[in-house]
Each structure stands twice: as structure tokens, then as C-alpha cells.
Simulated scan of single mutants.
Amino acid sequence: MKQLREIIPNTIKNLGIAKKYNTEWAVLNWPKIVGDDIAAHASPTSVQRGVMIIAVNNSVWCHHLSMMKDEIINKVNDFIGEKLVNDIRFQAGYFKKYQNYDEDQENYETINQKLKMIKLDDTELSQANNLANVVSDDNLQRKILRIAKKHLAFKKLKKINNWHKCANCDSLCPSDVLYCTVCSIDNREKKICDIRKMLSEAPWLTYAELNKYIDCLPHEFINAKTSLMMLVAAEINNGKNDNLNLLTLVMLSTGAKPEEVNEKLIKRTLDKFGRKNYVSTPRL
């Protein structure tokens, strides 16, 4: 008889949920990975296409953890045993929301009731049985069969509710949206990256000016601009205080055009972002 540690990974792989299982396992064991101090202020909510979304209780901790991003990514991947997390996105102010899972209990029970009403056809039942029959232990076989049936029923429920294939991938998504959740996140991240790139080249642009080139919403512009400002400020505080970084930070923060930047404006901006003593104001 095969041992459980050999059977379960193979079964999970056959179900096509190995990556999801591994990332969910990391989310469940978050305090073990990062320690109780960080876990008290930040909690992962999901992992979407290699991007871990972490809810943080305030902007101070959000900035602090962003400086530790590479270290956290390495710890998570070391715990999982493979490189499944490539990036982290922090969301300040959402921590409390994800600490109370009872809020989703009603929706969870409603979905379970709907799944019980789904009837699998002979082909689907055969597929589920084939997955379960890889083990000889009756108890484990029943558990695997239940998981497989639920997985297939959930896919069928989506089709019954007129879910369609995502415009970017084969995942199913509701009829009122064009992209699945993962692709929607990818698209938003790409747009944010495009906005950041344009702002890094022309940091004085207002929302109205940038929106002529990139179709975006005000909050997308603000998020991209804020993240770019924090990145540039961090580089300055880490010693990369070249004139380009300093001028970029000033224009991002104040909206001043290049010809409007002066030493007084630079000093006020640096003080606002908590410059270190060795940072000097450049000569213009």
C-alpha cells in the first residue's frame, strides 16, 4: 500500500490544483513563515498568478513590509518548496476585513447548497472515480472522491449560470464581466505599470494630462503615483540621492513642472518624506 505522503500529492496533481493547494498551504501557515510580529499586522488574502496579495493594517506597516518584500517572497517559496510567488502586492487598511472570515459564511453555505443540487453525468462520475481509485484505503478513497466531485460540480455550476471563458485564458468567469479575477488583476497591474512608466518619464503630469495617453480611473492614477513616490523616496533614503531621483520625487509630490523646481521646493519635499542627514539638496 502506498503511503499517504506519496498518494495525496499525486491526487492533488491529477485534480489540477497542485499550485493552488501549495499557495493556500502557505497562506494557512503565514505566522510560521514570517513570525508572529508581522502576522499581527499583515495577512495574505490570496495568490493570483504568482502575485501574493497581503492585507496590512496601516500604511506605515505597508511601507515597512515593502522594504522586506524580497525576503518575504523567499521565505514563502522556501516554505512551499518551489517558486510559486514572484511578487507581492500590499493593501493598506484591509487587514481587519480579512481577519473575520465569518462575514463570508453565508455566501459559503449558499454555494454549498447549490453544489449539492448539481447532478454529474456518467463521464464526470467516471473521471472522479478514476481519481479516487488510485488509492486502496477506503476512507481516503471516499475523501478523494468527494473532493473530485465537488470540483467538477463547481465547474458545472459556473456553466449553468452562463459563465463564459475569460477573454485572456480558459478560466470561467461571470457573464457580466469580460475577464476572470486573475486576468483582471493582471490587466490592472499592467495598467498601473504603464502609468508608473509614463510618470517616471514625465512626473509632473496631472490625471487629466496622463488620461489622454492612458485610459485610467482616478484611483488607478493615484495608486500608481503613490507607489512610484514611495519607491523613489525609498531609493533616496537608501543612498541613491542623485539629482534625477530628487527632482522626480519633487515633481511627483507637488505636480511642479521642471522649470518650477527650486531648492526651497526640494528641501520641503525631502523633509516631508523624512530624508536622512546625508541627503543634500542639489544645486540647480
Rank of each mutant, 00 (worst) to 15 (best):
D102T: 15
G93C: 02
S184R: 01
Y207V: 02
S66P: 00
E103D: 10
L252N: 07
E189T: 10
A128T: 06
N162S: 14
L145A: 13
H219K: 08
C193H: 13
L125P: 01
T123W: 00
Q113C: 04
I8P: 00
N237S: 03
T181F: 05
F221R: 06
R188T: 06
A18F: 05
A208M: 07
A148N: 03
Q141V: 00
V177L: 07
I236S: 03
L244H: 07
L205N: 05
R283C: 09
L65V: 13
T23F: 00
A39N: 07
I53V: 10
L120G: 05
T226R: 14
C169A: 04
D122C: 03
E71Q: 14
S43T: 15
R283K: 14
C193V: 07
M68G: 04
A224H: 04
V279H: 04
V232T: 10
M117Q: 14
K225F: 11
C169V: 08
E209M: 04
L270A: 07
K2V: 07
L178P: 02
Q91I: 15
P9Y: 05
Q141P: 00
K2T: 07
A39Q: 06
K267Y: 15
I118L: 02
S43E: 11
I38D: 04
W61T: 13
K13E: 15
N14H: 05
N107Q: 11
G274M: 05
I7N: 00
D70G: 05
L28R: 13
T181W: 00
I17G: 01
Y213V: 03
I17E: 15
A26E: 03
N223H: 12
N133Q: 11
K150N: 14
M52L: 08
G81F: 03
N129E: 15
S184V: 00
